[in-house]
Design a protein around this nucleic acid. Sequence first.
DNA 1: GTGTAATCGAGACGGTACGTCTCGTCTTCTG
DNA 2: CAGAAGACGAGACGTACCGTCTCGATTACAC
Lengths: 216, 216, 216, 216
Amino acid sequence: MGRVVQEETTRRRGRPRDEARRAAVLDAAADLMLEGGLAAATMEAIAGRAGVSKQTIYKWWPSRGAVALEGLMVRSDPAGALPEGASAAESLRVLAVALVRLVGSTPAGPLLRSLIADAQSQPEVAAALREQWLGPRRRAAAEILRAGVERGELRPDLDVAAAVDHAFGPVYYRLLLGHEALTEEFALASVDQLLRGITRREQPPGGPGYLDASST
Amino acid sequence: MGRVVQEETTRRRGRPRDEARRAAVLDAAADLMLEGGLAAATMEAIAGRAGVSKQTIYKWWPSRGAVALEGLMVRSDPAGALPEGASAAESLRVLAVALVRLVGSTPAGPLLRSLIADAQSQPEVAAALREQWLGPRRRAAAEILRAGVERGELRPDLDVAAAVDHAFGPVYYRLLLGHEALTEEFALASVDQLLRGITRREQPPGGPGYLDASST
Amino acid sequence: MGRVVQEETTRRRGRPRDEARRAAVLDAAADLMLEGGLAAATMEAIAGRAGVSKQTIYKWWPSRGAVALEGLMVRSDPAGALPEGASAAESLRVLAVALVRLVGSTPAGPLLRSLIADAQSQPEVAAALREQWLGPRRRAAAEILRAGVERGELRPDLDVAAAVDHAFGPVYYRLLLGHEALTEEFALASVDQLLRGITRREQPPGGPGYLDASST
Amino acid sequence: MGRVVQEETTRRRGRPRDEARRAAVLDAAADLMLEGGLAAATMEAIAGRAGVSKQTIYKWWPSRGAVALEGLMVRSDPAGALPEGASAAESLRVLAVALVRLVGSTPAGPLLRSLIADAQSQPEVAAALREQWLGPRRRAAAEILRAGVERGELRPDLDVAAAVDHAFGPVYYRLLLGHEALTEEFALASVDQLLRGITRREQPPGGPGYLDASST
DNA sequence: GTGTAATCGAGACGGTACGTCTCGTCTTCTG
DNA sequence: CAGAAGACGAGACGTACCGTCTCGATTACAC
């Protein structure tokens, strides 16, 4: 009945983990990345800022990347309610806007950039990032697309994985390269651009016009 | 019309820069990044491998990022001949394939990943990367798109910058996140997906079908 | 006449101290010092080896030195029976051989070396060592010498404290520096060398008087 | 002819070692041991006090013990002139007084105590200490004794190594245990006590023969 | 029996120092 | 005088113990 799993049946021995410190570490890491970029978020700085010893951090996280990843997961709520019964198009737009808001207005942005940077040289970070961050989000988007195909909204020959890349790749591109501002309009334009190519057309011009996306 | 700038007019005094060493440094850096990832390409390792003193490297490059950037520029030839008189669609496809080949089959891939990682914490690296790497490539693509608009191939209300992001963002996304293979087919699919949305349609289905891209 | 103080008059409440663990700690400490030198006998290692928590050790001993000292006292039996009515010479020889056997063939050797090492930087250890270990032994030796003087065996102008140092100093010297083997023969030679200088002679010796040394 | 080995023939390349820093490290280590005992002389404290980075210390010395040993050697001048043509007795007295002055009035005392403490758990320190500190001093004393035997001053059946222990062992004993003051008078008394037993006598003594001790 | 009080294991925690690593600067000597 | 060789200060790395501090479980006396 209870949706909360009974995980406290076997009470572990010894002094229990101090959850306040766990949060302090995650906060400190996020703050430092916000302030000075990820180069400023050294283990020693995190420990100092959090008022925690380095050993405590190493006890619970294997690397700086793991701290950042957990901070990222904590700070990004579980996907935000997708509207029930919405079309694929509408659902994708919600996801895109949520992503931009998350990385643009919360500590999750610097955290995510930090993680992707670390992932370039640390395969474990890359794997964790794909599994814990990217995977769920891509699966959610893929599910939306698959449902759209089934409902006849989208072309039946759709390459779902590629479509997800087309929708969100441009957002990550701007996030990491910074050559242009990462706005909600841009994210919506990316989704709409995708939709223009994959929407099933009996009645062609039902989709949004290219630059009208933000006006929707 | 010579595209090579006359840079040797004023012969500088003293011993001239040893170009052989310059190349050795760039080679060593590229090799190390290929072998052990960018974490292996420390300044000391580069100096040792190149048979050059650290000081010589610092003399000519301000940071490890600068070395990588120059190595990247050296290794990526000036875009390869674009077919004269080709359509915007064809030109973009050529660019996309060239990009995937470059980052997928040459030392430029690891170098580029390294640079983007460093750029997350070093604004100078980010700026240099945008100016020297991204800028020229985006300008080339933008020019192609603008020409396409002028020739009436593409919609007149096209947001050129966004379109460039839509064409190449997915490629960088896969390059950096590694969740799916970065193939030429995928790059072509990205371009085609873009084209489907921005091609001017008197005759609607002239563009390629979504999954037929690679067969073109 | 009972030498054991009545210490159990006021039975304390609560769970009493577990004497088996007390012994386990002392054994573990001694074993570790035997095996890996005193550097191996960390508090954590002792606790682990003894199957006891660190807190239990800190409850009963203030420092590692205190553990070692108690281990040393436990392992060195109460002086061994000195022969009744023996001469000062014979008694000293017995003490010397007992000392060498103790430090050479039992865990007391490493324990003692450990304690003296710690005593160099921890005054409390030094004090405890002098009071509990060195003091009783030196007093026993001094008493033997004083008795010898009174019986007319030894010179009346004997500096007892210095004589004790001359008899046992060389033994500690070899124990700690390890430049030569610490054998029973050597210890006996040290005692005999002392005796040759302090034994009362029928005809006063031509050599230098014992306490006149500094006036030379 | 020159007794100094030509060690600079092959000039090494690169920046030469900074001798000022070498001295600063040795001074800092000695100072710290004087002030706070050897426990205060951590590598980090030495580095900080000397205004030198830790890495520089580790570059030239393998361990804290090595630093202390070199400081000890630097601070104890090469034996001080022994009087030419002096008797064995006089020479030993000079050595003994020099030793007490060294360890009692200079930083060499704490340094030596530190080294002997470390030697208890680090075999390399013990070996270095025996070879570089104890060896030369014991050899000098042994040579004095051997010369005394040859000149007929001392008994021909003298066990030289044991005699050296008898002369200096008591000094180290008091240095390390600290149960009594380590004065020059005490050191002289130790030497004289030894001499009383090993000086050749016109009329053979009634006391026990030097090497017969263990047969008693 | 049922508190009540101490002991004990387990282990989290803030610290300090360790010895290593790489960075970027500097100093000297060699070609 | 350019450049290699490399010494150096700085500072983060990840580890090891220290000594203190919760916890919950256990044990024995006292009521």
